[in-house]
């Protein structure tokens, strides 16, 4: 590799996490009940039309529900009593490539892959505890995590 390119790359790797923190990646399109967005040390109430960021954690109350539209047209819905984190997201609108990693710790979550998965089905990655119910209906991937005892996490 060219030395200058190597420098650029290593600089990018050092700086990337700093920029990644504040990056908005999706818009809240559906909302009912109480839903919190946990961003770093802050807990913010979710509001319709607001943007969520990479690394945000989302927590819905017993009556809470939220629906997100990502910038690549992927969609995510979380039902009542859910806790999940948007652990990784990248999307390049010119090459139409990227990746979504969602970690579901509790509750029910459905995901419909958007453009990131158009040419690479592996671009969407949902992780969840081992003992969870999973369903694939049409283009919708759903997972239900019953995590009241916090057992079987891995």
């Amino acid at each position: 590799m060219h030395p200058a390119r190597k420098l650029c790359l290593s600089l990018a790797m050092i700086l990337a996490p700093a920029f990644a923190m504040a990056e908005p990646i999706a818009t809240i399109k559906k909302l009912s009940g109480d839903v919190s967005i946990i961003r770093g040390a802050d807990t913010l109430p979710a509001s319709l039309g607001a943007r969520v960021h990479q690394h945000d954690r989302i927590s819905t109350s017993a009556q809470g529900r939220i629906g997100l539209l990502f910038d690549d047209d992927s969609r995510l819905a979380a039902g009542p009593g859910s806790s999940l984190s948007l652990s990784n997201y990248s999307y390049d609108r010119h090459t139409r490539t990227g990746a979504i990693d969602v970690q579901v710790d509790e509750g029910t979550v459905s995901v419909i892959a958007g453009r990131v998965a158009e040419h690479n089905p592996d671009a969407l990655n949902v992780s969840y505890p081992a003992a969870s119910a999973v369903a694939i209906r049409g283009n919708t991937f759903s997972v239900k995590v019953d995590n009241s005892k916090k057992e079987g996490n891995d």
Partner: peptide
């Protein structure tokens, strides 16, 4: 998953 589907945009 009926309940979560209602929140799908």
């Amino acid at each position: 998953f009926e309940e979560v589907d209602q929140a799908m945009p």
